[in-house]
Each structure stands twice: as structure tokens, then as C-alpha cells.
Amino acid sequence: MELMELPHIESPEDRVLPKPLKAEARSLSFSYGSRPALRNLSIPIAEYKITALIGPSGCGKSTFLRCFNRMHDLYPGTCYEGEILLYPDGRNILAREVDPIEVRMRLAMVFQKPNPFPKSVYENVAYGLKVRGVMDRRILDEKIEQALRSAALWEEVKDRLSAQATSLSGGQQQRLCMARALAIDPELLLLDEPTSALDPIATANIEELLLDLKRRVTILIVTHNMQQAARVSDWTAFMYLGELVEFGLTKQLFTNPSRKQTEDYITGRFG
């Protein structure tokens, strides 16, 4: 009798690197004036996966995230070195000749605190589309419903699309910001502690949402919540003092980190 062919089991020894990539920081350094904030970071961002950035306050997580949409360009005296390549075209989005507006068209970002525009629910989600020249009401309606459904908010707001966004609860406002970000079909979703101002239920909703979303969009998330990083991300980068200490598969990093510093941080013994 023939024995059943067994599936290949990946050895936990395989400290692999992600593939294919959606983006990649290569030897990235960044400074605010004379103050260096990031030192020689090389971090790959796997396509259709969630990559979490963890580390103590001031380690440069948010600074790193903000390099992706060239947000630092808004302030004088900042300086980038190295590159951030965005795939599939492999374009260095930090290059001088690249227009930051063009970069921002491809990405979307959600911040720590919900920041809806002081407009209606509908207008908040429509904003990015209108900026991109979508004016057809039928297309807008369709896209807005789709984005609100993706953000798991549609059922709660479908009867009050014209209500002020600020009348929604904190968790709903954050999901509205998520819908606003998703409406433009971003290639990469940047999240800067998106649940730190939310209660556990709203947090669980957002986390569920992220796990659903990664089928369609690559996600890079900064979080202070270690359990959140462990729950939602596929890859984790641990940063300290502007440097990358360890990068690896989340399940590996949280069960058997290779660096002592990572171990101490994730077990709450330092940081």
C-alpha cells in the first residue's frame, strides 16, 4: 500500500527573509537637523503581509514610518540618506527628483488619534478620490461603500452618511480614517499606533480588519502594544536608538529572539 505523501514542514531554523517585497529600506539614515534619528536601517517590507515596527519610545519607529510618505519634507532641516525602494517599479521614493505628492498618491497613512476632517462621513471618504479627480457621483458612491465595508464600518454608518464625522465614536472615527485611507486603493498602508487611543473592543475590530485587509494591501504598522504586534504581524522589526536590532518572522521573534536586547524588550525587562 502506498503511504500518503506528507507536506513539507518548514524548519523553525530557517531564518528566512521575506519575498516578494512591496518596499525596502536600504541603508536608510535620517536626521532632524544635526540630530540623527535613524542610522543605516535596512528593512524589507513583504508584499501582502503585515510588518510591525516595535521598540521603546524615541527609537525612531514613527520617524521611519514617516519617511515612506516623505512627511519629513514638510519641515526644514531634515535630511535623508540611503533609499526606500517601492516595488514593483523599484523606484527610490526618497530621490530628489521624485515628487512627494506623487509618492503620497501611492500610499495611505492612519495616525494614533482619529483625525477625521470636519466634514460629513461621506465627504471624509470621498476626499482622496475627489483630489484624484473622481467626480462621477455613481463611482464615488460605489467606492465609498466599498471602502466603508472594507473598514467594517458600513453597517454602522450607511444611514447617516451625511452626519458629521466627529459625531461618531472614537473607534468608529478610527475606522472612518481607515476607510478614507483605503478608498484610494493604496499600495502600502502606513499605520502609526492606530489603536492606542481605542478601547479593547475597538482595538479588536481594527486588528480583525488588518488581517482581512492584508489580502489586498501591504501594511506597515508601528505599535507600542507588543501583544498586538504578536497577534497581527507576519514580520517584526525591533528598533532601538534609531537602529535596527533584529528583524524576523514574528512567530520566531516572539518565541526565540536571537538578540538579548530583543528578548529583554519583548519580555518587559527593559525599555
Binding site: M226, Q227, A230, F254, T255, N256, P257, T262, E263, I266, T267
Partner: peptide, 9 residues
């Protein structure tokens, strides 16, 4: 405590 790493092991 949701232990991690060595604590979890």
C-alpha cells in the same frame, strides 16, 4: 502576563 521569548518557553 502574556509571556514571550524565554518566559513563554
Amino acid at each position: 502576563h502574556q509571556p514571550a521569548a524565554h518566559d513563554l518557553r
